[in-house]
């Protein structure tokens, strides 16, 4: 029962879950309960898209489980009954694919890059990545052990900047908090975090950010209890409306 019993499901597998747009079997109703496992950084965007899908299909109820990408991958591998997995980490998604649990191959639907976050008004006068070498500025980056920290190391290496941070935060939110409080002049965080922080934080994009792109893959799961709704959800995320929502939240979209 790993592959769907119906012919429609088999077709879906062949078409691949990320790129399929034309193979929807007519007559199948989008209804029932849809369970989406998604990375925590997607909380706002996907909740909005879920509401939209429910509005379009009155018989549908979308349930989300937001958590870290590795926790989600572990849960799926352990047999959690999800329909869709939206991860923030291609490696973690790879674990699920390798276990043969995905319905087709995952496709990247969004990506996130680092941005320089500064307090409103930019009191430190930060202009670009080179300012992270200034020992007189109060600067925060993520610790190398966490994803945003390893990304930071990559962009510093690419830009040839000898960074002089005052603190290596344990996660991106902690770094952002210090910007919001005005206790650091700049922090290296994700563009989506800058957007989410609102008016208290300004973002400064920089060209080297492209050296460390964090890609978000999405895929239906082979054991999906509700494959029809799963496909509808993935389609919506990848539609123009989905891309607009992602872009509003600061994601780049393909």
């Amino acid at each position: 029962m790993r592959r769907g019993p119906a012919l429609g499901a088999l077709l879906l597998v062949l078409a691949g879950c990320g790129t399929d747009a034309a193979g929807a079997p007519a007559g199948d109703e989008v209804a029932g309960t849809l369970t989406v496992f998604a990375a925590a950084s997607l909380t706002d965007v996907l909740t909005g898209l879920g509401d939209q899908l429910e509005a379009d299909h009155p018989g549908l109820e979308v349930q989300f489980s937001f958590a870290g990408s590795s926790a989600l991958a572990t849960q799926v591998v352990q047999g959690a009954p999800a329909d869709v997995l939206a991860s923030a980490d291609t490696e973690q998604m790879g674990l699920v694919t390798d276990a043969g649990l995905t319905d087709g191959s995952p496709g990247v639907f969004a990506s996130n890059v680092l941005e320089i976050a500064v307090p409103a008004g930019n009191p430190g006068g930060v202009t670009g990545l080179a300012d992270f070498a200034d020992p007189d500025l109060a600067l925060a980056v993520c610790a190398p052990a966490v994803p945003c920290g390893s990304a930071a190391e990559e962009v510093f290496a690419a830009a040839g900047v000898d960074a002089q941070p005052d603190t290596q935060e344990d996660d991106v939110r902690a770094a952002l908090t210090k910007v919001q409080l005005g206790e650091v002049d700049a922090a290296l965080v994700y563009a989506t975090d800058v957007r989410a922080a609102g008016d208290a934080v300004e973002g400064i994009p920089f060209p080297e950010a492209g050296q460390a792109v964090n890609e978000y893959p999405i895929c239906r799961l082979a054991a999906a209890p509700n494959p029809v709704a799963a496909r509808a959800f993935v389609d919506l995320v990848r539609s123009d409306a989905g891309r607009r929502a992602l872009a509003d939240a600061g994601f780049r979209t393909p």
Binding site: P165, D166, T167, Q168, E169, D170, A174, T177
Partner: peptide, 20 residues
């Protein structure tokens, strides 16, 4: 970790090192 941050040699105490 909130108030002093985390930087090896300056503010990274053992519990911070353990957590990271």
């Amino acid at each position: 970790i909130t108030f002093a941050g985390n930087f090896p040699g300056t503010t990274q105490t053992m519990p911070l090192a353990v957590y990271l």
